[in-house]
Design a protein around this nucleic acid. Structure first.
Length: 464
RNA sequence: CGGGGUGUAGCGCAGUUUGGUUUAGCGCACCUGCUUUGGGAGCAGGGGGUCGGAGGUUCAAAUCCUCUCACCCCGACCA
C-alpha cells in the first residue's frame, strides 16, 4: 500500500479530550475518531488492527473446538424478562421500541439469546458438549464512558458460551478456554496476568480475569514474582508480618467503616469512599511467603462457570443418558477485541508513539524515501516495495511528497515494527537502513538480503 | 447520578475579569506558486469561524443574566 493512496489522517497535537496514551495515540495515529461519548469510528488503520486481533482470537477459538456463529444485536425484551435481567440491568441497557411498541434492547451481552438457541436445538446429551462463539458488537450505556476505547459504550468482543451435561465437562471446556486466552495474549505479544475474580451481574460460581499489565490500568493486582500467585488486589490474600492471614477486602471494609461486617461483603458502596489501601511492605504471598508485588492491569478477558442459572430460567434442558431431563450446564467466556487494541497501545508505547507488536501491527514495514525526487532513489524504492510485496509482507510505502521529518514522525507515531529508510546513503552504499521500532536499533541491509531478513523476522515473530 | 471543568476555523489555544478600540486573533493543518527534502522546511499569496444552542439585558454582547445541549475529569459501578 502506498501512503499517498491510503487514508491515514495523523494529528500532530494532542487532542484535549484524551488523557491517557492509548486514547491520545489512537486518535493521533489515525486509528479512530470519536462520534459521541464512548462511540468511535474505526479508520482504515485501526480497522486493520481490529481484524488482526479478531483473526488471532478466531484461530485460537477454532483450535480449541469452539464453533463460530452470529447472533443479532437487537434482542426482544421477552427473553430478558424470563431471566429477570430486563429490570436488573437498569439504565446500562440501551432500550428501544419497534413500530408496534414492543420492547427491544441493543445487546449488552448474549446469554439470553444463546440459551434460547440451546433451548430450541440442544435436546440430547448426544449434542453435547458444544461451545459456540461470536465476534460481535456490544452496547452498554456506561454511567461513565472514559479513556477512549478502554471503556466505550459500543465495543467489540468475542463471547463464547459452552453447554455441557455436567460440571466435569464444563471444567474441561473452562480449562480449554483458559488456555486459549493465554495463547491469544501470548501470540499478540502482551504481558498479562490471570487472576481470580468476582462474577458480578453475569452470575455463576467463580471466574478468572485476564489482565494486560499497564501503567494506566484500572485494576490493581497483587502478584508474587516467586510462585506466580496473582489476584485482584482487593481479593488478594497475604500474610502480614504478624503472621496472620488476611484478605485486603476484609481489611478495607473494617478500616473504612470502623466496624465488623459479618460476611466480609460490602453491601452499600455509596455509604463510604472505597479507595484501595496502599500496598504495604509487610504484605507477603500467602502461598510461599515472599513479598507481593503490586501491579496495575487492564481487564481484557473474563471467563465464567455459569452452571444452570440461565438454562433453568429459560428452560433449556436436555435428555441425559439416564433418560432424565436436566438443565444444560453453561459457561461463558468473553474477551474484548477493541479493548485489547487499546490495552496493547497502553502497554507498548513511548513518547513518540505506538510500538505495535508485529502480530497485530497494521503494516509490518514502513518504507521511507527521504528524497523522493531523485529518480534513481525512487526507482530503487519502487523495486524494494515490490520485492516486499512479493515476499507477502504488509508494507506501507511512504511515497508522499513531504519532508523526511514528517515521514519519520508519522512512522514513529503509527508504530510500524520495521522501517526501511532509503536516502542519500543508499545512493552511495546501496545499503538500506532498517530500524526496529521496538528498541530503535538499526542494521544496514543490502538489497539482495531482503528475502533472508524478512524470512528471519517472520520466523522470530510468528508471522505467516 | 453527585462533584469539578471546558465549549471561539479541521486540531491546539488567546481574547471573556473591567461590554464598544477585532471587518474576531495566533500557531499548526489546508489551497496556489517557487525554493526545499536523513527527523514535523522557507518565502510569497490565499480560503475557512459569527464565538455550542435558545432566550434575555443593552444604543452596543464571544464578553453580562437565564435556560439548555455536548464533551472531559474525579467518585460510585463496570468487559
Amino acid at each position: 500500500m502506498k501512503f499517498s493512496q491510503f487514508f491515514i489522517p495523523t494529528l500532530k497535537e494532542v487532542p484535549s479530550e484524551a488523557e491517557i496514551p492509548s486514547h491520545s495515540l489512537a486518535l493521533r495515529a489515525g486509528l479512530i475518531r470519536k462520534v459521541a461519548s464512548g462511540i468511535y469510528s474505526f479508520l482504515p488503520l485501526g480497522f486493520r488492527v481490529l481484524k488482526k486481533i479478531e483473526e488471532i482470537i478466531r484461530q485460537e477459538m477454532n483450535n480449541s473446538g469452539a464453533i463460530e456463529l452470529y447472533l443479532p444485536v437487537m434482542q426482544p425484551s421477552v427473553l430478558w424478562e424470563k431471566t429477570g435481567r430486563w429490570k436488573e440491568y437498569g439504565p446500562e441497557m440501551f432500550r428501544l421500541k419497534d413500530r408496534n411498541k414492543r420492547d427491544f434492547c441493543l445487546g449488552p451481552t448474549h446469554e439470553e439469546l444463546i440459551t434460547y438457541l440451546a433451548y430450541l436445538d440442544l435436546k440430547s446429551y448426544k449434542n453435547l458438549p458444544v461451545n459456540l462463539y461470536q465476534i460481535q458488537v456490544k452496547f452498554r450505556d456506561e454511567m461513565r464512558p472514559r479513556y477512549g476505547l478502554l471503556r466505550a459504550r459500543e465495543f467489540i468482543m468475542k463471547d463464547a458460551y459452552s453447554f455441557c451435561r455436567n460440571d466435569d465437562d464444563l471444567g474441561i471446556i473452562y480449562k480449554s478456554m483458559y488456555d486459549a486466552y493465554c495463547r491469544i495474549l501470548e501470540r499478540i505479544g502482551l504481558q498479562y496476568r490471570v487472576v481470580e475474580a468476582e462474577t458480578g451481574l453475569i452470575g455463576g460460581k467463580f471466574s478468572h480475569e485476564f489482565m494486560v499489565i499497564a501503567e494506566n490500568g484500572e485494576e490493581k493486582l497483587a502478584f508474587c514474582p516467586v510462585c506466580g500467585y496473582s489476584a485482584k488486589y482487593e481479593m488478594s490474600k497475604s500474610i502480614s508480618e504478624a503472621g496472620k492471614e488476611k484478605t485486603n477486602k476484609e481489611k478495607t471494609v473494617k478500616e473504612k467503616t470502623g466496624k465488623e461486617n459479618k460476611d466480609n461483603k460490602i453491601n452499600k458502596l455509596g455509604d463510604f469512599t472505597y479507595p484501595y489501601p496502599e500496598p504495604e511492605q509487610e504484605d507477603r504471598c500467602s502461598n510461599c511467603g515472599k513479598e507481593l508485588k503490586i501491579e496495575k492491569g487492564i481487564e481484557v478477558g473474563h471467563i465464567f462457570k455459569l452452571g444452570d442459572k440461565y438454562s433453568e430460567k429459560l428452560d433449556a434442558r436436555f435428555l441425559d443418558v439416564d433418560g432424565k431431563l436436566k438443565p444444560l450446564v453453561m459457561g461463558c467466556y468473553g474477551i474484548g477485541v477493541t479493548r485489547i487494541l487499546a490495552a496493547a497501545i497502553e502497554q507498548l508505547h513511548d513518547n513518540k508513539g505506538i510500538k505495535w507488536p508485529p502480530s497485530i501491527a497494521p503494516f509490518t514495514v514502513n518504507i521511507i524515501v527521504t528524497t523522493e525526487k531523485n529518480s534513481e532513489l525512487s526507482k530503487a524504492s519502487d523495486m524494494i516495495y515490490k520485492t516486499l510485496k512479493k515476499l507477502d509482507v504488509e508494507v506501507l510505502y511512504d511515497d508522499r511528497d513531504v519532508s523526511a521529518g514528517i515521514k519519520f514522525k508519522d512512522s514513529d507515531l503509527i508504530g510500524f515494527p520495521l522501517r526501511f529508510i532509503l536516502g542519500r546513503k543508499f545512493l552511495g552504499s546501496k545499503l538500506i537502513d532498517v530500524e526496529y521500532r521496538k528498541d530503535g536499533k538499526r542494521v544496514e541491509l543490502p538489497v539482495d538480503s531482503i528475502p533472508k531478513f524478512i524470512k528471519e523476522f517472520k520466523a522470530a515473530n510468528n508471522l505467516r
